[in-house]
């Protein structure tokens, strides 16, 4: 019997803020990709799922850059990817806290970069926001669309703006809840209960902050405030303290 040629698995290389790196390792490897990654502060990942390597593998099909918080680090990651990867390899980069257009200004091969929405816990959603830049040709967008399809996601093309859609709305909800807490208008428990039972929100704002991580929420709100320069994106001082102290919400 002739041996069936087993095509080599396509390789995805993942870099960035650790919670998202772990999520995308699971997502990509469960959809048949060989995954290599480089991230600090990441727990033990099953070696059968992914290979940790500081040195970039040679045959990378897609690179995912998931950093939202440390933008200096993000820039270094993108510069390194741009240098090491063949010109034809697409870089799909989280553009929640810095626009994809701004990111493409950091690299030489601008047409390969497309932005997308990456926040903790969103890797399991069936839809992903994708933000092409003025430099992204239709082919790059198609490649990215095929990639997300291959991991079970539809894409929604949105304009390349900081905060995109879901992160911007949900972080503003969390910010308002933080103002309410700060003013001691209600307890965290009552805030979550009111929004889940009263408005059918899938999670309470405080629960949501816990799921996304306060530092991610703070990074999104800071980016909105910086980018849009509007008073309405002023961050609740309580929220800022929570993010800076690295702790979760203080339960009253």
């Amino acid at each position: 019997m002739p041996r069936v040629h087993q095509p080599e698995k396509a390789v995805v290389y993942i870099l960035g803020d650790s919670p998202m790196v772990e999520e995308y390792i699971v997502l990509c490897s469960s959809h048949g990709y060989a995954v290599a990654y480089d991230a600090e502060g990441i727990g033990a990942v099953d070696a059968s799922l992914a290979r940790k390597t500081a040195k970039m593998p040679e045959n990378v099909s897609f690179a995912l850059e998931l950093t939202n918080i440390d933008l200096e680090k993000k820039r270094k990651n993108l510069e390194a990817l741009d240098k090491a990867l063949p010109v034809t390899t697409a870089i799909v980069s989280s553009s929640v806290t810095v626009s994809a257009t701004e990111q493409s200004s950091w690299i030489h091969h601008k047409s390969r970069l497309v932005g997308f929405c990456s926040l903790p816990t969103l890797s399991t959603a069936s839809l992903v926001e994708v933000a092409p830049t003025v430099f992204s040709p239709a082919e790059t967008i198609q490649v990215v669309q095929r990639f997300f399809k291959s991991v079970g996601k539809e894409i929604e093309l949105v304009q390349d703006r900081v905060g995109m859609v879901f992160p911007r709305i949900v972080c503003q909800i969390i910010n308002e809840a933080a103002f309410v807490l700060q003013e001691e208008v209600a307890s965290p428990q009552d805030i979550d209960l009111a929004m889940k039972l009263g408005a059918n929100f899938p999670f309470g704002p405080i629960e949501w902050a816990d799921k996304l991580g306060m530092q991610q929420v703070y990074a999104v709100l800071s980016a909105l405030h910086r980018d849009l320069g509007e008073e309405r994106y002023r961050i609740s001082p309580l929220l800022r303290q929570m993010a800076l102290s690295g702790s979760w919400w203080k339960r009253m």
Binding site: I169, Q172, I173, N175, E176, A177, V180, E183, E184, V185, A186, S187, D190, I191, L193, A194, M195, G198, A199, F201, P205
Partner: peptide, 19 residues
């Protein structure tokens, strides 16, 4: 019961607002 202090929009209207 959702206990709130008397303040603009209490909490329901206020937190639905950004949505």
């Amino acid at each position: 019961v959702i206990s709130v202090t008397d303040s603009p929009g209490f909490i329901f209207n206020r937190i639905v607002h950004p949505f």
